Simulated scan of single mutants.
Amino acid sequence: MAIQWLKRLVELASGKDEAKSTPAAAPSRTPVAVDMSIAAVETKSADPLFGVKKGGKEVAAKLFSAMSSEKGIHLESLLCALGAIAGYACQISVREEFVHQQGRLEKDVFIVVNSKQNGVSYFFGDLLNKPLAESKYSVWSLSSGASQKVGLQRLIDLHDIFRHVTDTLGQSSFGVPRIPAVHKAKELPISYVQYLWPQLFPLAQRYSQKPGDWPVLFGVAVQEILFASKGLIDPELALQIVMESAVPMSKIYLSDASSV
């Protein structure tokens, strides 16, 4: 894997190069897109999500800088990376709140599916669907809302993505976005999770210690890039890349990631 940009990200995430971090301009019910410009940061006193929004903006800026080169940036790869991280954040937030903090058993928090094909465990359930696709500030709501603001006319079929993810558990096609070859990211979503999560998660924690905020923060980062990409990529394609990356990555746990 080409990880030159990852080394750059490590520098940015550690605060060594702040000056260059600003970028250029299936669920239980049918999800409803929310036209929510959450990334518009207001004053700290008036906005309870001030820190989450600020953190999302910083994540977007740092990842944009890290993945940029003298040739520019591969926008599809950036969207895939952020979608993958946002999806993974959904599971980590549920795992932290209900398993680690509340002491509940993993099997009582998630529907755990153990694949006989590759020995990997995959995680499902209503608690996971909420930050991923059902809540007001879910990854789906924030991403689809931003896509509509930049010109999306027709929502993608999110249920189809969930079905595809379920149908491909344990197979080589799991977690491979169904995107035209000319628009494919340079890496698979699982690679972005493996390499980027350890760098970006501590940054998110600096802005909020509340597990429920983490998917929102990364959803804001997705919004930032979707807004910045207006006119550069078809919004339907951009949303497809984000969700084709987010949904499967919400189902894996990093300790098993090398086997997926």
Rank of each mutant, 00 (worst) to 15 (best):
I3S: 14
W5L: 13
L6H: 14
K7I: 12
D17T: 07
D17G: 10
E18H: 10
T22A: 15
A26G: 07
P27V: 08
P27H: 07
A39Y: 12
V41R: 14
V41T: 15
E42R: 14
E42W: 09
K44N: 08
A46S: 13
D47S: 04
G51W: 15
V52S: 12
G56E: 14
A61T: 07
K62L: 14
S65P: 07
S65Y: 12
S68Y: 09
S69Q: 11
I73Y: 02
S77C: 02
A84E: 03
A86C: 04
S93T: 02
V94G: 02
Q102C: 05
Q102E: 10
R104F: 01
E106C: 00
K107R: 01
F110E: 01
V112L: 01
V113Y: 03
S115V: 07
S115I: 08
K116E: 09
V120H: 06
S121V: 00
D126E: 10
Y137D: 07
S143W: 04
Q148G: 00
Q148D: 00
V150A: 01
G151A: 07
I156K: 08
L158D: 02
F162V: 02
Q171Y: 03
I179H: 02
K184I: 04
A185Y: 02
A185F: 05
K186S: 12
Y192F: 15
Q194E: 12
Y195S: 15
L200I: 15
F201N: 11
Q205G: 13
Q209G: 05
G212N: 14
P215V: 05
E224S: 12
I225C: 09
I225G: 09
S229K: 11
G231A: 00
D234I: 11
P235N: 11
L239I: 09
Q240I: 03
S245T: 03
P248H: 06
M249D: 00
S255T: 06
A257Q: 07
A257M: 10
